[in-house]
Design a protein around this nucleic acid. Structure first.
Lengths: 137, 137
DNA sequence: ATCATATTTCGCCACAAGACGAAATGAAAA
DNA sequence: TTTTCATTTCGTCTTGTGGCGAAATATGAT
């Protein structure tokens, strides 16, 4: 029961659920997730650590970059992801995240990292003031 | 997304998950749930209210007694319950709850209410000191 | 009407958790 | 080797939540 409860607790939080949905379709670098969610890097890292420890996501390091994606093994053992995908198929917020993520994926990684480091310069990349302001669901 | 998140939050808490699993198989009165979980009546009532407001459970009043069960409509619209049942099929804690619940269901309701009101007399009903002490999962 | 009883609501407390900035760590570049 | 940079860890603060007992409410019995 403890594991089930832990899994539910992890996914029952908005930022982590959004991370889960993004990593369900893509392997992403921390800096990309930071820009997607508009959170501090430290917060994002902590969320990812929880999900990694729970076995929900896999981690791959490439030099200074850490990439994460939902673990295929976890997906196979937990039909929960299917339920979530179905439940959130109509979610405007998840759809907005997907749109935003397309833009992020089109950016060179060093530009994404620049947005993380210098948010003031984010306007040049089109990401200023877009950080989770709209209250859609 | 808000509704999905709310559902996850509600079920991501141990007491409520145990209540959910019990109400998935039975319609129970508040006092029966109180004895099953070993929580205060006020706490139990608050949990049930959250679940009721979220549409997860139905409520039926019979005089002073309030009965709850998982909503059939909710079950049909949310395959999550199937996943939970499968995930918790091997849970010792849920199995222990089921055993305990058999005993509670075998008791006259006024005797269950007596356990709620006068826990000191619970020994006579075999329910003293059994309140969630073991740490099984 | 009063009393008893089951449940719900309220008020409070202790603990947990998300967020941030700063510091530390690990890898790459110079 | 030193500097730069991406990520992780740490420390702190604020907010949220589960638990309890007391009070309030609703129903039934006398």
């Amino acid at each position: 029961m403890k594991e089930t409860l832990n899994t539910l607790k992890i996914l029952a939080e908005e930022s982590r659920l959004r991370i889960f949905m993004a990593l369900n379709d893509h392997e992403l670098c921390v800096c990309q997730i930071v820009v997607l969610l508009g959170l501090a890097a430290s917060t994002t890292s902590k969320h990812l650590a929880l999900m990694y420890q729970a076995g929900i996501i896999d981690q791959r390091k490439v030099g200074r970059w850490a990439y994460y994606r939902v673990s295929k093994t976890w997906k196979q053992q937990h039909r929960l992801s299917e339920w979530l995908v179905a439940e959130l198929a109509d979610s405007a917020k998840i759809a907005a995240d997907c749109d935003r993520l397309e833009k992020i994926l089109a950016m060179p990684l060093d530009e994404v990292c620049n947005v993380v480091t210098c948010p003031e310069n984010a306007a040049a990349s089109g990401f200023a003031g877009d950080c989770g302001e709209n209250d859609c669901c």
